[in-house]
Design a protein around this nucleic acid. Structure first.
Lengths: 306, 306
DNA sequence: GGCATATTATAGAACAAATCTATAGCTCTG
DNA sequence: CAGAGCTATAGATTTGTTCTATAATATGCC
């Protein structure tokens, strides 16, 4: 890995130049010099320096997150090559959201393990952007998710569509929207809730200019009255207010148990595409393509068609 | 990016050392030297050299794929920091653990939205350290949590105490620990569950030398039989096993509804201080201080006094 | 207040590394 | 078999990195 970035990580972890210097077995002036140089090449101040040590600026925090990713990617690369030399097959890891896992991925993985007990598939559950993070650092080979609108193409991912799912709107019992079909304008009259809370360190994944549609993305902060990464919190909020929770319709039955009911829509609902994200670089690898084929086949029998 | 990797990519793309040398504006012997060095650090031959140029070995192919990823990651990081510098004004986002959210933050937020519909408050639920992380990277303005022991003071946070809470222990109905007061040793005989999943990247927030007490910190990986970032998962585990879920007592009523009951403690329980974490530099901002005042007021009426 | 002890910053010397020039050696092609 | 195109090698040169020594500044403690 890049020397300056490695040293940067050490400084961020130690919280001081001198502390990092001792762990890195170099002297403190060297680090002072190098970190200045890094700040120059990055073009932003990375630290707030004081006589108690250094603290990361927000630019420093961004770099820290990404430098850690790069570090992981580098380590994963080295071990991948080492595995290649030993002739041992690398295990594949698949990422997924909980619903896809429960719906059909689980069975597929169980089958796969049985067929290839020596090269098992591992599974990482999480939200889309975390999974993207993990894919970029080489921790997972591919993941299942909704198509992410406005994703920056320079990230270099392929998206393989599998299924069409639609968004439904959910409100508490006795809400005025219930009882008759409603159009989009009527629904938008009420405050909106969404169960996805973007973190700024994921903002780099997005490229606003190339957005295909004009819909709000996860980073629009104005549109929603309430948003949270916790679905439970969103449900609580929907139960305690007149706001409308928008979520994929596959959760309808679970929501009814919590006391949220689906609003009938008088217009065709917004369709989302669910599918597989995979790095362009990994296309063509035998095991990856095999897994994609298996997932596609399983999706065709379980999920709504495209 | 790492210089050698950049040069490696150029060589792989050009298919020859001399060709890459001209595009890189360096001389061919330099590249010969550098690529040898890279092969040494990677520990595998990357090229098959011939008088017609060079060809990637399978190790070279692996490195090529991953080096391209690193390259992109680096570029994306630079542009993310540049975007950050252009500056985006953010709304207020409050972080919290689920317990505080359910107990009183929910009502406060619902009220707040009604009062200021144009400047909504967003909520991020998560464990303390994730919230700390998010606060430092600017995603959230403040968060509610237990006082974090051993926190490195150079991080520059203010802690505003709100309430004294104690940790209780919860088990499923009919558990042997129920029915009589138990001491700490008796409770520790059973496997432990905790609803906090530490990530190693947060370790830098801690300053081990200044830790006041010797209690297990969140980074002890051996002590707990089960830990998850999802409270629901912890509850599931507690219901399905003999393990003891340790959690703040304020959730007792909610736990009873789920089928978990509090173990009577024969010794005085460990007291924690709950309060608001906020960045020193954001103190004084009108909306931040307003929110702090509202939270403090709500806490006084809902939570145990200090 | 003032001393001890952290910290980062600076300057110049010493050292290490990267790069270049020049040249050799190999292999395919006409 | 000579020429063109490539990589490899050796030693000189240039550039960059790291170190030592010291200054400057803040913090905490007596």
């Amino acid at each position: 890995m890049d020397k300056l970035l490695t040293q940067f990580l050490a400084v961020a972890d130690a919280g001081s130049l001198s502390g990092a210097a001792t762990t890195l077995l170099i002297t403190q002036p060297t680090l002072t010099f190098n970190m200045r140089k890094l700040e120059e090449t990055i073009g932003a101040p990375l630290f707030e320096r004081s006589s108690r040590g250094v603290r990361l600026t927000r630019y420093g925090e961004t770099l820290y997150e990404n430098a850690r990713l790069m570090n992981r990617l580098y380590d994963n690369t080295l071990s991948a090559i080492a595995d290649q030399q030993r002739g041992t097959e690398r295990g594949l890891t698949v990422g997924s959201g909980y619903s896809w896992w429960a719906m059909f991925l689980k069975d597929l993985v169980v089958h796969y393990q049985r067929e290839f007990p020596k090269a098992p598939v591992q599974v990482s559950l999480g939200n889309q952007l975390r999974l993207l993070d993990q894919m970029l650092s080489g921790d997972i080979s591919l993941f299942l998710a909704h198509e992410i609108d406005g994703l920056n193409p320079s990230i270099g991912t392929d998206f393989i569509p599998l299924s069409r799912v639609y968004n439904a709107h959910f409100v508490h019992e006795g809400h005025k929207l219930l009882g008759a079909p409603r159009n989009r304008a009527e629904i938008n009259d009420y405050p909106q809730i969404i169960s996805s809370l973007a973190e700024s360190r994921h903002e780099r994944f997005f490229d606003i200019s190339r957005r295909r549609t004009r819909v709000e993305t996860v980073f629009d902060r104005t549109h929603y009255a309430f948003r949270s990464n916790s679905l439970a919190a969103c449900i609580d909020y929907a139960l305690a207010s007149e706001a409308v929770l928008t979520h994929t319709h596959v959760m309808r039955d679970a929501f009814i148990k919590s006391g949220l009911f689906e609003v009938e829509q008088s217009e065709p609902p917004r369709i989302n595409i669910a599918g597989i994200y995979v790095l362009k670089e990994r296309r063509g690898e035998e095991r990856v393509e095999d897994l994609i084929a298996r997932i596609s086949a399983a999706a065709r029998t379980t999920l709504p068609p495209l």
